[in-house]
């Protein structure tokens, strides 16, 4: 199983109404393997150039005690002008000091414990940027014990007895073009940051540190300046509702995770029995599936064959309700409606 569950959570959030997708995400049965097992051609992977650029960008903002990032955060008033201090919790493969997520999490919690004990001037001089701290997924919702690293946290100490405020930041490599920035990208980035806000609150609760810290309802996004390798920070992003949505999502994931699936494999191969569980699960095709699921084309074909109106768009699905495409066409050609729902549709299309 992949213990870094960030991608799986994103997959889950992309279509939580589709049971096959939920099982795939929660029980870590990659859709790619399912699609291949069904004989579909799967085009996977990211652009090697884009991956490299992402890594370079992240390294560049955290280099030299995160000087570039700090400057941008101060300019956007996320941090005060005198902010200083940087602690790196990233893994070695991302230029950090820790060999794995467990070590990163242990160090993060230890550091938070130390922060909580500080008083006086020392408390006001805590390091203000934390890179890549790792959290455990609340309630072990993602089996067996999901871990993921958030991109960046800022620390805003206040004199006792006020709690130390932690603010979540999400780093993305897409360009910030002001009002022209891709709205879908922004929305998904905010959703991801909201998820981290919720997870961090639960982690603090579980670690009995909640009384010393407050996680801010707002966060910040770190994007790139178009055509330059410099950060562009969007501060004061309200994440309150995204965090609430994440809480609901986790609750649902927890319930789904309680269902057992056939045993894991010791190797990277996904056992047939686990793949079959996804194949057999009910699927709910939606417009958004195209963007993330390797089974999308297959599901759309199935939905069309069954006459499910959502195969031609979520809005058509809402327009026709329980009436199939085949029946809708019959009604369009003058067939007599059989019940109230059909009569209503005929009234709307005539």
């Amino acid at each position: 199983m992949r213990r870094d569950v960030r991608r799986r959570l994103e997959q889950y959030a992309s279509n939580p109404r589709c049971e096959a997708n939920v099982i795939s995400a929660v029980h870590d049965v990659p859709m790619e393997a399912v699609a291949r097992s069904l004989g579909f051609e799967v085009a996977v992977g990211q652009s090697p150039f884009a991956l490299l650029r992402g890594q370079q960008f992240e390294r560049s903002i955290f280099r030299d005690d995160a000087v570039r990032l700090r400057r941008a955060l101060i300019t956007q008033k996320v941090l005060p002008a005198n902010a200083a201090g940087f602690v790196d919790f990233r893994m070695a493969r991302n230029d950090g000091p820790y060999p794995n997520l467990d070590a990163s999490r242990a160090a993060f919690l230890q550091r938070l414990g130390a922060f909580a004990k500080t008083v006086g001037e020392a408390r006001l001089q805590l390091p203000t940027i934390l890179a890549g701290p790792t959290l455990m997924v609340p309630g072990k919702a993602i089996l067996p014990d999901g871990l993921f690293a958030i991109d960046v946290l800022t620390v805003h100490p206040q004199p006792r007895p006020a709690p130390i405020v932690l603010r979540v930041g999400e780093v993305k490599v897409y360009p910030d073009r002001g009002g022209f920035t891709d709205a879908a990208e922004l929305s998904s980035t905010r959703a991801q940051a909201g998820l981290y806000v919720h997870a961090l609150r639960v982690e603090l609760q579980q670690s009995k540190l909640a009384q010393h810290f407050a996680v801010a309802d707002d966060g910040f996004l770190v994007l790139t300046r178009p055509s330059f390798n410099l950060p562009s920070v969007r501060g004061a992003e309200d994440l309150q509702h995204q965090a609430e949505r994440a809480a609901v999502m986790f609750d649902r994931v927890l319930r789904i995770a309680e269902r057992t699936l056939p045993a894991d494999s010791a190797t990277d191969d996904v056992p047939t029995t686990r793949r079959q569980a996804v194949v057999d699960a009910p699927k709910q095709y939606a417009d958004g599936c195209l963007a993330f699921c390797e089974l999308a084309a297959h599901c759309q074909q199935e939905a069309l064959a069954r006459g499910l109106p959502a195969a031609l768009g979520d809005d058509l699905g809402r327009f026709l309700g329980p009436i199939t495409l085949h029946r809708a066409l019959e009604l369009l050609h003058g067939a007599a409606p059989q019940h109230d729902v059909e009569r209503d549709l005929v009234a709307r299309i005539s």
């Binding site: 031609l312 768009g313 809005d315 327009f319 026709l320 495409l325 369009l332 709307r348 299309i349």
Partner: peptide, 15 residues
Amino acid sequence: MSRHDVFERLRAWDE
């Protein structure tokens, strides 16, 4: 997306 657009899409599928 108006009701008109959705209905026209259904007609296009029919055609």
